[in-house]
């Protein structure tokens, strides 16, 4: 029986349907796993609101993070505004630092020094994009934090350290995406512009960068998404105090670092633990927003390849 089954499916005529079946299944796994992730994280993340009865407004807009306050003193409260602000501030500052640098570096590699730029610098940058994020965190912890503490002030564990580490971490990723989008422009654009008498800077500023705009923005948004979702590198250098920062040298906490630190130490099903799952859900929603921006917001306009 078994032999005939194998024979049937591996014979010339049927191997075609077998192949189609196997590959379709593999592709469907992508859909299935995405849906499973969304469903499970949502179910678990919503239990703060359904089981514990925390109101969405309080969760999102309150800065009172007191998940273990006894009932006598007013009961526990889980407001994660400080975490959200922490995440947003750190990742946006990181992008503000690394976007201009990345654009300069990518333009340099593609336009200013194309020979050794593309022969040596681009492979080097791509190689660096593979460096694990814990390594960036570790460098931040062992070099940047003591440097800030000794020379600028504060504890060293700060917003400043956090966004500097992130900005270096996302540099190679953004640069290599920008290089790709600049390289995909037709050669004629630059040549036409130069033939009309513009200088190289005018060609870059008025023709190349506007033409590659959608690619540039995509690269930067993906960099922001990566910075927003990064957990360990940030957690190692920002100090993790659960209050709103008032200066750039204050310690701060992000959604990701709160999950990293407390998920293992809080009992499953407790309010504290459920609030962490809700933060996970928030991260998931944010990454959907980033994807939607890239897919539908950015791809309009610019040139189509």
């Amino acid at each position: 029986m078994k032999n005939s089954f194998v024979y049937k499916y591996l014979s010339l005529r049927n191997s075609e349907s077998l192949g189609r079946f196997l590959t379709t299944m593999a592709a469907l796994i992508a859909i299935v796993s995405t849906i499973t992730i969304v469903v499970f994280i949502s179910l678990k993340g919503l239990s703060t609101f359904t089981t514990n009865g925390v109101s969405l407004k309080e969760f999102l807009f309150s800065t009172n993070w007191l998940p273990d306050r006894p009932l006598a003193e007013g009961g526990p409260q889980v407001g994660v505004l400080a975490f959200i602000i922490g995440s947003l501030v750190v990742s946006m500052l990181a992008v503000l630092v690394s976007a201009p640098l990345s654009i300069a570096c990518a333009v340099f590699i593609v336009e200013i020094a194309p020979y050794w730029g593309q022969r040596f610098l681009q492979p080097a940058i791509e190689l660096l994009a593979g460096i694990p994020s814990v390594v960036y965190g570790y460098i931040g912890l062992s070099v940047l934090v003591p440097f800030i503490r000794d020379n600028i002030g504060g504890l060293g564990f700060s917003v400043l350290a956090g966004f500097l580490v992130l900005s270096v971490m996302i540099l190679p990723t953004i640069v290599s995406m920008l290089i790709d989008s600049l390289k995909s422009l037709p050669r004629d654009y630059k040549e036409a512009s130069l033939a009309l008498g513009s200088t190289r800077w005018q060609a870059i500023r008025l023709v190349l960068i506007p033409a590659a705009r959608s690619g540039l923005v995509t690269g930067i948004v993906l960099g922001l998404a990566r910075a927003f979702g990064e957990a360990l590198a940030v957690q190692m250098v920002i100090g993790n105090t659960r209050v709103m920062p008032t200066s750039i040298l204050d310690p701060v906490i992000t959604l990701t670092s709160a999950i990293t630190m407390d998920m293992g130490n809080t009992p499953m099903g407790s309010l504290w633990n459920n609030a962490l799952w809700s933060m996970g859900l928030l991260l998931l929603i944010m990454s959907f927003i980033f994807i939607l921006i890239v897919r539908y917001g950015v791809r309009r306009g610019g040139i189509s390849r």
């Binding site: 992508a30 995405t34 992730i37 979702g229 999950i259 990293t260 991260l283 998931l284 990454s287």
Partner: peptide
């Protein structure tokens, strides 16, 4: 879905 999976924060996958 592939694009989504690719840009999920790894901590969310961990959860």
């Amino acid at each position: 879905c592939i694009e989504t999976l690719n840009s999920l924060p790894s901590i969310v996958v961990g959860l």
